[in-house]
Design a protein around this nucleic acid. Sequence first.
DNA 1: AGAACTATTGGCATCGATAACATTCTCTGC
DNA 2: GCAGAGAATGTTATCGATGCCAATAGTTCT
Lengths: 348, 348
Amino acid sequence: MGTAIGEGETRKPPGMTDVAQAAGVSPQTVSRVLSGHANVRPETRARVLAAVERLGYRKNSAARILSSGRSRTIGVVNLQTAFYSRLNLTFGIENAARAAGYSVSIASTASLDTSAVEEALSRLADQSVEGVILAIPLIHVSPRIEQLTGSLPTVTVDGSRTPASEVVAIDQSQAARLATRHLLDLGHETVWHVSGPGEWLDAVNRIDGWRETLEAEGRTVPPILKGDWSPSSGYRNGLILGRIPEVTAVFAASDEMAFGVIRALHELGRRVPQDISVIGVDDIALAEYCSPSLTTVAQPFEEMGTLAVDHLLRHINEPGAAHEPTSVEPELVVRASTAPVGAASGTH
Amino acid sequence: MGTAIGEGETRKPPGMTDVAQAAGVSPQTVSRVLSGHANVRPETRARVLAAVERLGYRKNSAARILSSGRSRTIGVVNLQTAFYSRLNLTFGIENAARAAGYSVSIASTASLDTSAVEEALSRLADQSVEGVILAIPLIHVSPRIEQLTGSLPTVTVDGSRTPASEVVAIDQSQAARLATRHLLDLGHETVWHVSGPGEWLDAVNRIDGWRETLEAEGRTVPPILKGDWSPSSGYRNGLILGRIPEVTAVFAASDEMAFGVIRALHELGRRVPQDISVIGVDDIALAEYCSPSLTTVAQPFEEMGTLAVDHLLRHINEPGAAHEPTSVEPELVVRASTAPVGAASGTH
DNA sequence: AGAACTATTGGCATCGATAACATTCTCTGC
DNA sequence: GCAGAGAATGTTATCGATGCCAATAGTTCT
C-alpha cells in the first residue's frame, strides 16, 4: 500500500486444484497420483507430475491431516539435558520414523515434574500425533498423564510403565552386572558404586544389578554414593572415595560421572587403574580418548530408538494386539581404566 | 467385531461444535474464548471453559492451521552428529520459541550433501513452517535451496549465507584469536592448529583468526593439521604433533579434538601442560573434569539459539525490515591444560 | 453380441476451525 | 425517549486435500 511498486509479492501457493487444471484432470486424480495410488494410467500420472513440477506445488499437510485424520507423525518426550547418550536415541527414532514415512515431533521438558511432563504430552497431543515415545523416566504417573497416554499408543524406553504402554528398554541391571562382574573378575574384593539419581529407573536398576552381583558372590555391599549423572557429582564423590583406603574398584553409573571420579582420585594422588579401577556406563565418544581411556558398558541407544519406533508403529497399525516388553543387551567395553587388583606397576 | 464386548471404543473426540452446544453458545464464541479474544463476557467465557474442561476438548491444530493460514511453527535444520555443543543451541531455540508461543519442528540431516539438506528443508516446507533456522554450515547453496529458503524467512546461525537470510553467529575468528593470544601470552613461540573440516565455516573462520593473530605478532605460521571435530581425528593429529620437538602449544578447533590430541601426546610421553599446552573450543561439560582439565573457549550456544529465534520471529512478523547480522562473543576459560612455556616442574 | 468385470476418472460432501460480515443488545448523551 | 456508538454473539463461506460413490471406458468370457 502506498508507494510500493509491488515487487514479486507473496502470491498464494498453488493447490491441488491448480495442478489439476494445469494437467487437465480432476483434483481427485492429482490426489491419487500424489499418494501413490495404484489405478492411474502412467500417462496421466506423468502429466500430473509434470504439472506439479511446473507449478512448484507443495502438499499442504494441514489440509491432508484434517481431511484424512492421520498425521503420520509420532511424538517424542525428551528430557532437555545434554546427556550425550540420549542424543543417539533420538537419532535412532528419527531415522526409523523417517524410513517408515513418519515424521517426528519432539517435546522437550526441562524437568521431570509431573506438570512439566504433562505439558509436554499435551503439546504433542495438540499436534495430533498418532503415538508417543516417552524417553524419560516416569516416576509418578499422574491421572492426567495416564489419561493422555491412555488415549494414545505409547512406548516407554526407559523401563518405566504407564498403564497401557509398551516397553522397550536396555537391560540396565544386566549392564550393572557386566560392570560389577568385570571388576570382581579382576580380583577386586568388592565394588563401590556411584549411582544416578533415585528418580531415574535406570539408576535404580543399575543399583539392583550391582547389589545382586555382589551378594551372589558373597561380597560385602558397600554404601552407595549418590550422584546426578553430571561430571561434577562424580568429582564430588570421587573426593570421598579417594580418602577411603580400602576402595579399589568403583562402578560409576555414567561415563561422565566416571570421569569426575577419576579426576578427583587423580587429585588425591590415587592412580587409575593401578590403585583404583573405575568403570562407567554409556560409552560416549570421549571415553576412548581421555586419560586413561575408560572401561565402560556400551548402550545400543540408536538401536533402541529403532526398536521403539517399530513397536510404536505396530501398535498404531494393529491396535488390539498386545506386544511383550523387549529389551536390548548392553555390552562391556574394556579399556584402560580398570586393571587387576594390585597391578601397581612401580611406585608405592 | 466378533466376540468383542465393545469396551470404551474410540469415540470421536469432541470438536468446537460439541463444546459450543454444551455451553449453549456458537462455535465462533468458543473460538474467541480459546484464542483469548477480548470481547467476550466473563460469564460466557467461564461457561465455555467449563464445557471445554468437561468434554476434554483439545484443539485440532490441523484445522486451525488450515483455516488461519498460520502454523505458529518454526523449523530447524540440524546436523545429525552427536556434537555436544550443538545440542545447547537446539535447547535455546526450543525454549525461546516456546516462550513466544511457537513450536519447533526439527529436520535432521545425516550429511551436508546438497541433496540431504534439500530434503530436510523440503520436509520443513511441507509442514508449513513460518520460518527456518539453518543450524548447519551451508557450503554450496544449490538453486533448489535458494528457492526454498527464498520463499521462507530464514536465519542461519553459523555464519554461512543464503541470499535473503539473516545471520546470527558466534564470532569464530574472535574465538580463535582468544585462544591463540592466550598461548602466545604464555610465552610460546608459535601455536600449532588442529582444524575442523574445511566444509565448516566455523572451521575456516577459526583458521583465519588463528593465522591473523600469529601474523600480527610476526610469528611463524605452522602448517595446519586437519581434523573432523571427532576425538579420534584429534588423536591421529596428536600422534603427529607429539613427534615434532619444536611443538609447545596446540590450538584444537574443538574440545573433543583437544582431548584426542592430549591423549596422543600422553602416549608419546609428552606431558600436558608441562611440555605442550593444549587449548580447545566449546567448553563441553567434561572439559573441567578430564585430566588435565581443559583450557578452552566457551561458546554461548544457548544464547545464540535465543537470539536466532528473536531474529526469525521479527523477520516473520515484519517482512520488509532488514536486520543486520548479529554476533555473540565467545569467552576464554583458563584451566589446567595450558601453562607458561618451560614451566616444566621436575622431570626431563 | 451381451453380460460381467475391472481399470480409470470425476463429483460432492466433509474434516474442524477461523475470517469476515451481520446481527442483537446495552449503554450514552442530548 | 431515541439516535448512535460499541460490546457481545451468531451466520456463512472457506481453507486444501481426501473418502466415498458414481460414471465412463476398456476387457474378457460365454
